[in-house]
Nucleic acid binder design. Sequence first.
DNA 1: AATGAATGAGACTTCATTCAT
DNA 2: CATGAATGAAGTCTCATTCAT
Lengths: 221, 221, 221, 221
Amino acid sequence: MAKKTRERRGSATTAGRTAPPEVRRAQLIDATIDSIAQYGLSGTTMSTVTRIAGLSQGIANFHFQSKKNMLCETLRFLAEEHHDLWKAQLADSSLSSAEKLLAIVDAHFHAKICNPRKLAVWFGFFGEPAHRDTYRELVKDIDAERWEVSVGLCRAIREQGKYESVDPDSVMRNLEALYDGFFLNILIYPDMFSGDDAKRLVRNFLARAFPEHFSPFLERS
Amino acid sequence: MAKKTRERRGSATTAGRTAPPEVRRAQLIDATIDSIAQYGLSGTTMSTVTRIAGLSQGIANFHFQSKKNMLCETLRFLAEEHHDLWKAQLADSSLSSAEKLLAIVDAHFHAKICNPRKLAVWFGFFGEPAHRDTYRELVKDIDAERWEVSVGLCRAIREQGKYESVDPDSVMRNLEALYDGFFLNILIYPDMFSGDDAKRLVRNFLARAFPEHFSPFLERS
Amino acid sequence: MAKKTRERRGSATTAGRTAPPEVRRAQLIDATIDSIAQYGLSGTTMSTVTRIAGLSQGIANFHFQSKKNMLCETLRFLAEEHHDLWKAQLADSSLSSAEKLLAIVDAHFHAKICNPRKLAVWFGFFGEPAHRDTYRELVKDIDAERWEVSVGLCRAIREQGKYESVDPDSVMRNLEALYDGFFLNILIYPDMFSGDDAKRLVRNFLARAFPEHFSPFLERS
Amino acid sequence: MAKKTRERRGSATTAGRTAPPEVRRAQLIDATIDSIAQYGLSGTTMSTVTRIAGLSQGIANFHFQSKKNMLCETLRFLAEEHHDLWKAQLADSSLSSAEKLLAIVDAHFHAKICNPRKLAVWFGFFGEPAHRDTYRELVKDIDAERWEVSVGLCRAIREQGKYESVDPDSVMRNLEALYDGFFLNILIYPDMFSGDDAKRLVRNFLARAFPEHFSPFLERS
DNA sequence: AATGAATGAGACTTCATTCAT
DNA sequence: CATGAATGAAGTCTCATTCAT
């Protein structure tokens, strides 16, 4: 019934005895993401995680002290991975404001970030009150930073064209909602909706808000 | 030791010894929604539900056979409640296409539908793979119907103005994503984001897509 | 290795399904005492207790909420049993003060109270800081009551003879220490020291303090 | 996450990399006593002991082979410490029998022996059947020796006065019980009962048994 | 001589489900 | 219809012990 054979992953060296703590932590976090994608957050147990990691039961508590903390560290890893990606995309100072805004959009729907496996973790946290508290605490600063940068870019774009009637705040709140809405679509209907679909639709959205700066993506032409 | 006082709800008559099955079912579904809002879907047990309902342990299994089924029936109730609402809003045949589209939007953010208590149930289902399957199966037809109606309205509006470059499909996919994105916002930040905020932002979105049919909502002016 | 067969005790009726809570509680407390006597307090697990009681694992938590509480209720049972016994022995108002004091002594070393099985519970609680706190809280009132009664009797006896140099307080503190010291002796060397030995030695102790009221117990004469 | 700071004790030299085995053993035994006083015998783990000692996890097993053995060695240390003390007190051959008996009493309630920290160890062993076996085995000879010496002194005192009715055996059994009873008092109510209180009460006890040799301790006079 | 990562058995507790009453 | 005692599997976490380094 239940699979008892270990799904030991990675080379024999990575799963060997007495590995450096950072290696084990990364290995366990990766296994946690897999487990959440497969069994859900509440279906994820110390047992599913360590079995996927190819390690023994006790080791997870040894490195993370508690399950709650392990889940929290997993979310933190994803949040930092996302943050690092869009910050890196913005580093090129030769980009225009419009290009920078698109870079942030692209980071959201980058295959490394936006795949059903990792989205399952985010929505696992959204789904439970206790985890939502964890989430709020964890992304507070990161989200505030992205909001400031994004709204700043919108304001800069607004100044560069005839956009008197466009409210940058309103555009950004819509844009941020689109991120989440498309994420959910990709999570629930992975075969019908992709990150690239999301990118195209966001392009169309931006083209309607700032026609001089973004061109709509024309389907099959 | 200390007996937890029952949170018996409703009048003594509704909670009496022998109530008609439909009453008990409704009572239990309401308690289930409360429990999910308070403890999350995985934190919801037969015990939390029956305690909130002010009934005995065994009764839920008696009426719903299993926990899985009880949760499923709860989701079905919400899906039908939502469906009934927007269908009712569309019933007035004197409405224009644009007004009808706005009516659907309003139904999404109606206080009866869009409150943290009920949103918690939806996102509880989104958060777990096993429940996502239930969700997909349950809303398949209902969502398809709403999609057809909505896209039809978009196409009608498109015909009524100079909207050659507007793709109704694209607009609707964005609009549906906005629903979910705003729902998530309301769930996570109930004190910072309301259904009315969502309505305004959707108005702005529609005004950019169909400027001749929708006017942007101007903040306090 | 480990005995797996249930040591179901009592008649089939007492262990049957759906017994009144008081019956189950008493049954579990009795099994707890047995388990502590056999495996010690820290060696007592929900598993040893329920196995001895012939019940399933979950039932102990159902009736006592937690292991800690079950242990606490077990101690309370013993404390009340002891209290009830010496109070009953004192009820006969025709007894002299000396006879009443002896009655309290007898209650301490009564076979129902002072047997290795129950002493193991008391000293199990004495042995661990966390349990000592529980003990202190639990016996506070009961011990104070016994102290008041005992010292009162000592004072009365003192008035009835030439005992100017006898300090009732000092005698009672010694007597109470003797109780505990003999209890420990009986617990550790059950084959070498009995409750009757203790009674005799206490008689000798009292005879030295109040020679006019107590006669020493003369060994084999 | 947060690294618990080690409670490394002693000077840096005693805790250095490579210390002589006897030093390490003494260091670990001291830490074991502390741990038992703080967490109880069953709450004492290899981890609590090594953390208190400021050493690494594996070291205790290295020096003591097993936890059981480490606890046993700790008890042996205390038993020998006690034995050495009363033997030393008796060494002065100019003392009378009565003075020698008092010296043994004093040794029992000497601050070095009779403090809540070390009493916690003794009663930790008394509290569990498995540990009681260890205790019996360990103190067998030591207790027999003290018993012989003590009864011998009682007999000598008896010969020196008009104590025909006094049974030395009975007195000593009471006296030994008083030791344990007062120990328990000091352990459970350290703020209400001290070793000096015990000494006074024992003096009163001896004064009643051998009035010509011991004078009662008169409270503040 | 010393470290600390790793193991795995076992503890307490929770909970969906069953069933006598 | 309804109650609530009872079951037993499963989850999280602890810990003595082992062992590569």
